[in-house]
Write a protein that binds this DNA or RNA. Structure first.
Lengths: 166, 166
DNA sequence: ATTGAGAATGTCAACGTTGAGATAACAGCA
DNA sequence: TGCTGTTATCTCAACGTTGACATTCTCAAT
């Protein structure tokens, strides 16, 4: 069997046999998988009246544990987006009543973002179905393969410095 | 050692021990890697006066072989973007003189996009440095690990139906 | 106390993509 | 020939992110 990236590698092998395009076999696949999975997750969340970024922010707060609060900075590091994007996201989640901004009295530059009861309920109801959906997307792998894949990806992330979610 | 996703899994394990969040160990890492690699590639191409999408389109045409022509539809399937995005990209590449639109006389709905000599020169000069840069990003993996990783990712892509670059 | 470097968040214009729709052309069939 | 469904591309308004900048604040050194 072969996938779209195999075809790409074959084409390069024919056109530029002088270049070792092996690295594309990994990076090209990560790029394509990311796009495919984005679509799948987007569709899944849309079916539940949520955007993927909404779930991501709520989930980041939820898994941080009580009191379900993080600074805006911690949220944009976790989501790997810029501060402008996080300001926008918090605005909209707050408008939906899923989070609220809390002034930090210790450091008045900081804004803490806190999950509301409604936000917590929503994420707690969604996390199970969400991972079930992710499991469906990975169903082609045995559990051993899944672990090996996770391990290899971890090595790569570590080497690129992705060692903290902030 | 642990990466950002390990921390995420640990947090979920503490907060929601009833949910098996294992699938996040794969999908979360693919998502994060994709973002990190995007940044790296963007920076690399910017250093050479190119956008990543510019290289992607030129490379897709180049590796298809003589006469270095593809339809607009084939290009948007390869790039996994919508037709509006491809129209925009072709416009800008044509304005830079790197590609040209050719009317297809067989099927007058179709537009073929052809690499100009200038476009071909540019991609031929860049492909070597580009894969060298990708190899640098993967340097943490042995060549055996890289092959195993590529194989696992291929299995996943196939299962999701990514079997043709159009 | 003051200064200056650096950090945390918010603002906003520019930019590119999406997604729905318009247009034109092809293909099969009655 | 005319109909119908489908395909290929382009158009364009809406949307969200980026990235540079502004603002406010902290902290350490003097």
């Amino acid at each position: 069997m072969s996938d779209a990236v195999d075809q790409l590698l074959t084409q390069w092998g024919r056109e530029r046999p002088d270049v070792d395009v092996g690295p594309m076999g990994v990076i090209g696949r990560i790029t394509r998988l990311s796009r495919l999975l984005d679509r799948e997750l987007k569709e899944f969340f849309a079916g539940h009246g949520l955007e993927r970024w909404e779930f991501d922010v709520l989930a980041t707060l939820r898994r941080s544990g009580p009191p379900y609060e993080l600074t805006a900075g911690a949220l944009n590091r976790a989501a790997m987006v810029t501060s402008g994007a996080i300001t926008n996201r918090i605005d909209r989640l707050a408008a939906r009543g899923l989070v609220e901004r809390v002034h930090d009295e210790e450091d008045r530059r900081s804004v803490r973002v806190r999950l509301t009861d409604q936000g917590r309920t929503m994420v707690d109801e969604m996390v199970g179905p969400h991972v079930a959906n992710e499991a469906r997307l990975l169903a082609a792998l045995t559990s051993e393969e899944r672990d090996r894949l996770a391990g290899l990806l971890r090595g790569l992330l570590e080497s690129l410095g992705d060692t903290s979610i902030g």
